[in-house]
Simulated assay, not measured.
Amino acid sequence: MQKFTHLNPEQRYQIEVLNKDGYTQTKIVAIVAAYKRTIRRELKRNTGKRDRHSKAYSADVAIHRTQERHRLKRKNIRFTEPLKAQARIWLEQDKLSPELISAQWARLGQ
């Protein structure tokens, strides 16, 4: 199975410079050492559609948009409020250690 890696800021700056210099996506792939689909998606997703960024790829804008997408994406929260309340009760009233609480949840399938 193939391991997925994100583009790092250095690669995004390389893409910006190479794209401005008129390199094709295939040549950018060879220089940046990423997959062709990754470069295609990066350019499509982060190329400006209007305003002063129209039809221009900017690494700074791409980095900002990526951080914003990661910040807004849904997260799988396993330690929910009811579990927190139950843990507080077990800690304070039953005097269970965190390890015992974890074992108790594992036994209960939570």
Results as ranks from 00 to 15, higher is better:
M1F: 00
Q2M: 10
F4G: 00
T5V: 07
L7W: 00
L7G: 00
L7F: 01
N8K: 15
N8F: 07
P9N: 09
P9V: 04
E10N: 15
Q11L: 06
R12W: 00
Y13W: 13
E16L: 03
E16Q: 14
L18Q: 08
L18Y: 13
N19L: 08
N19Y: 14
D21R: 13
D21T: 05
D21N: 15
G22H: 04
G22E: 02
G22P: 11
T24V: 10
Q25W: 02
Q25C: 03
I28V: 08
I28Q: 04
V29H: 03
V29T: 12
I31N: 02
A33D: 06
Y35W: 03
Y35A: 10
R37F: 01
T38G: 01
I39D: 05
I39N: 11
R40M: 04
E42P: 11
E42T: 14
L43M: 11
L43A: 05
K44A: 14
K44N: 14
K44S: 11
R45Y: 10
N46G: 09
T47D: 06
T47R: 14
T47F: 10
K49S: 13
R52S: 13
R52N: 12
H53C: 15
H53R: 11
S54I: 13
K55R: 14
K55A: 14
K55C: 07
A56W: 09
Y57Q: 03
Y57N: 05
A59K: 02
A59N: 02
A59I: 00
D60L: 15
V61C: 04
H64Y: 12
R65I: 08
R65N: 09
R65K: 09
T66A: 14
T66R: 10
T66F: 09
Q67D: 07
Q67E: 14
E68H: 04
E68M: 04
R69I: 05
R69P: 00
H70A: 04
H70V: 00
R71P: 12
L72A: 01
L72M: 06
R74T: 05
R74M: 08
I77H: 11
F79N: 12
T80W: 06
E81V: 15
E81A: 13
P82R: 02
P82I: 02
L83Q: 11
K84A: 12
K84D: 03
A85P: 05
Q86V: 06
Q86R: 12
A87N: 06
R88A: 09
R88F: 02
R88Y: 01
I89F: 12
I89E: 03
I89Q: 03
W90D: 02
W90F: 06
L91I: 06
Q93P: 06
D94W: 04
K95D: 09
L96D: 00
L96R: 08
L96F: 09
L96A: 09
S97C: 07
P98T: 02
P98R: 03
P98F: 02
E99M: 07
L100R: 10
L100G: 00
L100M: 11
I101A: 05
I101N: 07
I101V: 11
I101C: 08
S102F: 01
A103E: 07
A103M: 11
Q104A: 14
Q104W: 06
A106Q: 13
A106D: 11
R107E: 13
R107V: 12
L108I: 08
L108V: 05
L108N: 10
G109T: 07
Q110G: 02
Q110N: 07
